[in-house]
Design a protein around this nucleic acid. Structure first.
Lengths: 194, 194
DNA sequence: CCCTCATCTAGTCATTGACAAGTTGTCCTC
DNA sequence: GAGGACAACTTGTCAATGACTAGATGAGGG
């Protein structure tokens, strides 16, 4: 096992799984999941056209692996957060920093819904998502959580689909999102906005 | 011209464009845009495999037409609304009533971005979206609008991707959304929530 | 030394999108 | 009502892809 090194001279690629994953993320970020082709990824990695299938089974398997990795990354990202506003900020930052993951994570049509690793990672992310709001006073925690999630998710989605680029301008999207969270957090902690 | 009637005995289908559109919406709603095949749509309509391309150019053209139709429908839906909360409610209702349209509308990778009909319809919908919040006092109208849009869009997206089905339960999603809008509209009109 | 097994190759098949060329029917004009 | 222009549709074809099968390669273990 030669970890990390891509040794092209050998019959075995050495790290094909990772190479395919990385290339796939590039393609998806650039042209969307529809542009993803296993054969193209194989060409990029310099292996035969059927090699990627060995690691992921099929195209759906590859996308499922990406989604699972994405939910894991999201869970890790949220775990470091403090409070509702910060978690929302981190959510938006995750989406814009990992657009390919984000897209695939929320495209159930492309995924194998019953994949164990996917469901586990999703559960982990869901727990982190809920952990951010359980301590909120006044409002029903579940409703608050879904409102916050909707706000962050909606903004991230609209940003990634180029629907709010004018408003955000050159600002990092998570900074702009801070403006939006005022509507929620003002109420949550009792501090008036404006 | 035989309007509306699908006369199968003739060489000309009579209303192939509409038939293909309808079938495409069915497929997308059931299995997502990735499952869409022009040849399959042709089979469903009982025409030759290249017939759909005559009306839409190519696969991207078909999806672009669907997106344009979707933005038109959304604009019409919003136009009848009164106030911010009602428009949000209508937005969610549109998304859940027309899931195929909604999905395609916000998948820029699948669309021809410079299509005239698409950009026109999008502009119309955008204007309606903005019209709902221009009269709001206190807050910056643009920021308010984007927050409201993010909230509605995020909730609709999460609902369609089966991420909040537990919380919503058997309720019509737009009814559940009313609970969420309290966080925004309470502030906007000065009425305290809870 | 050989055996096992994960990794990768090579070949094949059905399906698809796209394109080209031809056919059919309709409508417009004279 | 004949002819021509044109839109609607068909037929045939090609390259690309996903999926599958069988086989080759090489690394590590007993």
């Amino acid at each position: 096992m030669t970890p990390g090194k891509t040794d092209r001279s050998t019959y075995h690629h050495g790290d094909l799984r990772q190479a395919v994953l990385t290339a796939a993320l590039d393609v998806i970020a650039a042209d969307g999941p529809a542009a993803l082709s296993l054969r193209d990824l194989a060409r990029r990695a310099g292996v035969s056209h059927a090699a990627p299938a060995h690691h992921f089974g099929d195209r759906t398997g590859l996308l499922t692996a990406i989604a699972a990795q994405g939910f894991g990354l999201l869970a890790d990202t949220l775990a470091g957060g403090t409070g509702l506003a910060d978690r929302g900020r981190r959510y938006v930052r995750f989406a814009t920093a990992h657009p390919a993951h984000f897209q695939v994570m929320f495209a159930p049509d492309l995924l194998r819904a019953d994949d164990p690793e996917l469901t586990a990672a999703r559960a982990r992310a869901g727990a982190e998502l809920r952990a951010g709001v359980t301590t909120l006073p006044g409002r029903d925690a579940r409703t608050t959580g879904i409102a916050a999630w909707s706000l962050a998710h909606g903004f991230a989605t609209l940003y990634l689909t180029h629907n709010v680029t004018d408003a955000v301008g050159p600002l990092p999207p998570e900074d702009y999102f801070d403006l939006l969270t005022g509507f929620l957090t003002d109420r949550a902690d009792g501090t008036p906005g404006t």
